[in-house]
């Protein structure tokens, strides 16, 4: 029994250490030294899929929390509109679409990164946004109306830092130069739009097809042909 407790305790300590090292310290290092950080991320395999997934989950949690717990002064949402599933789909969908978009562009532009690396990079980029949203929840419950500029600043800073990380991430992962990176990011945005459009089109066509088949089914059943 005692042994077991010890083992469990050790494991917990181990996990906390891992969490601190990988989820808090290393991304902060990347943020402070983006080129060096992503170099380690890619070359020395310091980026981990498990950590990426943790970031994704954290982002979902923080997003749902901010929907419900952001202070009333900045929160226009009504709790009855909260749909956790759609929030999950929203975050996961965006990450996947950006990943696929970036991958499809960079394979054409001689990018060196593979799909897994791109996915990890995109997830790591959420790091500042998670912090900003989390801090935003706290701030929005403390600040008064005329001090809300601070809240806006924090959220904007989070967004900016995420974009900043993504920029350097693309440079390092794909071993690009500056101009090529900018072009790739523009192309990625275009690719994302195309993917969304294709999805929409597919969805619409599928719906029509379903409608068509359903009408035929109805016609047959109502006419007693079967």
């Amino acid at each position: 029994m005692k042994e077991k407790c010890k083992i469990v305790g050790q494991k917990i300590v181990q996990f906390l250490k891992f969490f601190y090292e990988e989820v808090i310290k290393f991304p902060a290092y990347i943020l402070a030294h983006p080129l060096k950080g992503f170099e380690e991320f890619k070359r020395y395999k310091k980026g981990k899929v498990s950590v990426s997934l943790i970031f994704m989950v954290l982002m979902i949690i923080v997003n749902v929390l901010s929907f419900q717990y952001n202070g009333f002064l900045v929160n226009d949402n009504e709790i009855k509109d909260l749909n956790t599933l759609s929030q999950i789909a929203y975050i996961v969908g965006i990450i996947l679409v950006i990943t696929v978009g970036n991958w499809s562009v960079t394979t054409l532009f001689d990018g060196k990164g593979n799909m897994k690396e791109i996915f990890m990079m995109v997830c790591y980029c959420l790091y500042p946004l998670i912090w900003a949203t989390g801090v935003g929840i706290l701030l929005s419950n403390v600040l008064a109306q005329d001090e809300m500029a601070l809240f806006t600043l924090v959220i904007a800073l989070g967004g900016f830092l995420t974009a900043y990380m993504f920029f350097f991430g693309v440079i390092s992962i794909h071993e690009y130069g500056l101009i090529q990176c900018v072009l790739t990011i523009l192309a990625t945005i275009l690719a994302v739009l195309i993917i969304l459009f294709a999805c929409l089109l597919f969805f619409d066509l599928f719906q029509r097809m379903y409608g068509f088949i359903y009408t035929i089914y109805q016609e047959i059943t109502l006419r007693d042909l079967l």
Partner: peptide, 18 residues
Amino acid sequence: FKLGADRYYYGKAFKQYR
């Protein structure tokens, strides 16, 4: 004020409260 969805007055009351 929250029930009445009035952010202006809510902000004032909140500031006093805080």
